[in-house]
Write a protein that binds this DNA or RNA. Structure first.
Length: 420
RNA sequence: GCGGCCAUGGCGAAGUGGUUAACGCACCGGAUUGUGGCUCCGGCAUCGUGGGUUCAAUUCCCACUGGUCGCCCCA
């Protein structure tokens, strides 16, 4: 038996990295005053159809959807925002006195895709959502949070790309212009783009296949169609980023793959060598209509999500070692049955005193027990033999210096606490 | 969803249509009857799964599963 395609086990040796990174993400989020939200891993299919958008690749071909025994259509969540917004509405968080409502989440997401490195069918996202504020300062805050998460872990090769998708009016005008622009050459575009032109002409812009087509190069930019309000908004977002010394690049072709975005859109990529085809570390943007689409009052929102798998890949690509403690405080070597019983007692006492302790369970000989202790990076080894048992002490060896001394049983916890 | 490459012990990695499938690392045991990191000796493999060709398949063919790279898309 193997884990299903596109899934992975995170086992000791790697799980420590996950724990470290996840703790880091949570700590930094707390500093920005985001609170954790946990939502179900599956939802009614309709939530994603409405929230993510019928025309998106996610909804059209990537969802894990099934009927449960009550004949309900259920979908394993492909992303986090729709669920968070659903929960925001369901729990009437729009009524909270603390606005905006600032939330973060971590957990597995599911998309049925062809796996390759950095693209799994089950992958873990960390994301934040700020609901209830239309202040460009919160856009900048979310972006700065995203950048800081990476920076504080030591990543250097980062590129922040931003764009504005405008408001409804801007998008409609741009949409008309795009259709008018591409219609005459429609037959020369790839099949997907021909469909996109009908359904969501904006997405023609980020087609990789037709990138070289001259109509692409001369295509009307959304930035030229921004309404005065949208344009002013985007200018303010940039001003905040400038003030926070966050470098960015404006890419008018940056289009997010989910339908709910408007105004600010951004993506963080890695420049690092050895990163293969996938360079996007995280993406996010503003979604001012989404809360209303999902049955809540008109409420602005912005958020972003990152993939922890890709974050770990980026760390690897940049050769960053996480400060993970792989040592063991104490290993108790016991010789014989009687000593083994005493060892179990001592190990228990030490653990109760907050000291990491381990003993042998393989009936190994002394030499092999020392080898095991060494392998576990034990800082101290306690030896219990016949003589020790008789006299009521343990031989305590400092594995780094090789020095050893006799410590009576009762004093072992204190001795170790003082010397660790 | 499309195309290429790949699959040998815990890990890395040779190899062959035919009796015992190299080697390195790790692990276990011994040399060293109570002390790790060095040395020497010994031990340790249903050759991804299923089917086919053949007197004989780990080796050839097919399917499946999985990995990987590119495309697509994204996190």
């Amino acid at each position: 038996m193997k884990a299903p395609r596109g899934t992975q086990d995170i086992i000791p040796g790697v799980s420590e990295k996950w724990q470290f990174v996840e703790k880091q993400l949570i700590d930094i989020s707390r500093r920005y005053n985001y609170k954790e939200i946990r939502t179900p891993i599956f939802e009614h299919t309709e939530l994603f159809q409405r929230g993510v958008g019928e025309t998106t690749d996610i909804v059209q071909k990537e969802m894990y959807t099934f009927k449960d025994k009550g004949d309900r259509s259920i979908t394993l969540r492909p992303e986090g925002t729709a669920s968070v917004v659903r929960s925001f509405v369901e729990h009437k968080m729009f009524g909270s006195p603390n606005q905006p409502v600032k939330l973060f989440y971590t957990g597995p997401m599911f998309r049925y895709e062809r796996p390759q490195q950095g693209r799994m069918r089950q992958f873990v996202q960390f994301g934040v959502e700020a609901l209830g504020s239309a202040d460009p300062a919160i856009d900048a805050e979310v972006i700065s949070l995203a950048m800081n998460l990476y920076r504080e872990l030591g990543l250097q090769s980062l590129k922040l790309i931003i764009n504005s998708l405008g408001d409804k009016e801007s998008r409609n005008n741009h949409r008309e212009a795009l259709i008018a622009h591409f219609q005459p050459v429609k037959g020369e575009l790839c099949e997907d783009c021909q469909t996109r032109l009908e359904q969501n002409p904006l997405r023609v812009l980020d087609c990789k296949q037709d990138r070289e087509h001259e109509a692409m190069k001369t295509a009307p930019s959304i930035l030229d169609f921004l309404s005065d309000d949208s344009s002013a908004y985007f200018t303010k977002v940039k001003a905040y980023l400038d003030e926070m010394n966050i470098p960015y690049e404006v890419d008018p072709n940056l289009v997010r793959g989910l339908d709910y975005y408007n105004h600010t859109a951004f993506e963080i990529m890695s420049d690092a060598e050895g990163f293969g085809a996938i360079t996007t570390l995280s993406g996010g943007g503003r979604y001012n209509g989404l809360v209303q689409d999902l049955g809540g009052p008109e409420t602005p929102g912005i958020g972003f999500a990152l993939s922890i798998e890709r974050l770990l890949m980026a760390l690897e690509a940049e050769g960053i070692d996480l400060p993970i403690d792989e040592s063991l405080d104490c290993f108790v070597v016991a010789l014989g049955d009687e000593a083994s019983i005493k060892a179990a007692g001592i190990v228990n006492t030490l653990r109760n005193a907050g000291i990491q302790a381990e003993k042998d369970y393989q009936e190994r000989k002394m030499k092999a027990q020392f080898k095991a202790a060494n392998r576990l990076n034990a800082k101290f080894v306690l030896v219990l033999g016949v003589e020790e048992l008789q006299e009521g002490y343990a031989t305590v060896k400092n594995m780094e210096t090789g020095e050893q001394e006799n410590i009576v049983f009762d004093e072992i916890p204190v001795y170790l606490e003082q010397n660790l």
